[in-house]
Amino acid sequence: MDVKTPKSSSNGFTTEITLEKLHKMAAELILPGRFILRLLTAALEVVTNLLARVFGSTLVRRHFHLLLSGLVLFGPVLSFWVSKYNIFANSHHYLYRKFLKSTWGWTCIFAGSFILLLSLSARHSFSISLRHLSRIGIAGLLWWVCQRLLTFLEDAAGTCYEPMATAQDLQASATPLQPLLLLHEDQTKASCLKANMLWRGYEVSQDVLILCLCCLLLVEEMSVFGHHLSPGKPQQRSPGAPLRFIFLLCVVLLALWMFLLLCLLANFPKWPSQQLGGALGYLGWRGLYQGWYRLRPRWGCPGLPGEGIFTTTNTDKHPQ
């Protein structure tokens, strides 16, 4: 019994030293981690303050739609200088497959998160948050209606053709003329392309439409963040790192949508279907943010971004 006592005390002493060493090591690691975290937080505040000032400026709020319109109109001209062998000339590129077909989904997630965090940070009112989130739902409903209507019009105005020659014959043929085609009138565009046949008809680029609509929507929603950062505005809670981070992600998403739009126009120019898609996207934004959302609440409108959060009247509206 006397022999085991020193061992027990010795083990307890060793355990105490080990825990003390671990505590010191953790303290040494925590100090640099806190310094890096503070540095990243300061950088996030500086970057988001600058971006909020840019998107909240009158220049961006009044003329961003003109910049987007110029991009849609003159973007196809870049096809004369863009190489057809660049990585973005492949329609199966990763960006096209992962982002282009789910443009509205990404926009809904990031813009909805930003609206929710912004409204909860400024006002602790769930009803106000739902009212502002309804703008995303209304825009999504508009996009769904446009999709169904454009698909119906394309199926009604187009025609499906089946080539009489095989694919090998078409590749071996040196003449640029199309071979004789057999007509299929009972096919839709989706079923025609799925059967590896040719579709001819009028169409409106739905990709350009949703990209333009999402870009304009993101700019409208982000433009009020600078108002939230104003020191003279009454607010219950200062914007934290999660709200600033979501705002930064929205800016990155906007840059990605504009880049994808430029890639589509430069590598796959389709006149005038892309311009018609851009025009419909602009009209959708104009009808919502410059029309319906400016009406009084009795018309069932959710109001403009920031209305009811920073202002109680309709005086703080976006400039025309």
Rank of each mutant, 00 (worst) to 15 (best):
T159Y: 04
A157K: 14
R131G: 02
V145T: 09
R135C: 06
S113F: 08
G140E: 01
W143Y: 08
S129F: 09
L117D: 01
R135N: 08
G140F: 01
C160D: 10
S127K: 15
L117F: 09
I138L: 12
R123T: 04
D155V: 05
R123A: 05
F152S: 07
S129M: 14
A139N: 05
Q147D: 09
R135Y: 08
G140A: 06
G158V: 06
R131F: 04
L133A: 00
L120C: 11
A111Q: 00
T159L: 11
A157Q: 14
I136D: 00
H132V: 01
H124K: 12
L153A: 13
R135S: 14
L141I: 14
R123I: 02
L150T: 05
L142Q: 05
C146Y: 10
A139G: 08
A157H: 13
I128C: 08
I115T: 12
L117K: 03
V145S: 06
S129T: 15
C146I: 12
L120R: 15
S134N: 08
C160G: 10
G137P: 06
F114Q: 10
S121H: 07
R148K: 10
G140V: 00
L153C: 11
I128K: 13
E154T: 15
S127R: 15
Q147F: 10
F110S: 00
W144G: 09
L141A: 14
L118V: 06
L150R: 00
S119Y: 13
I136T: 04
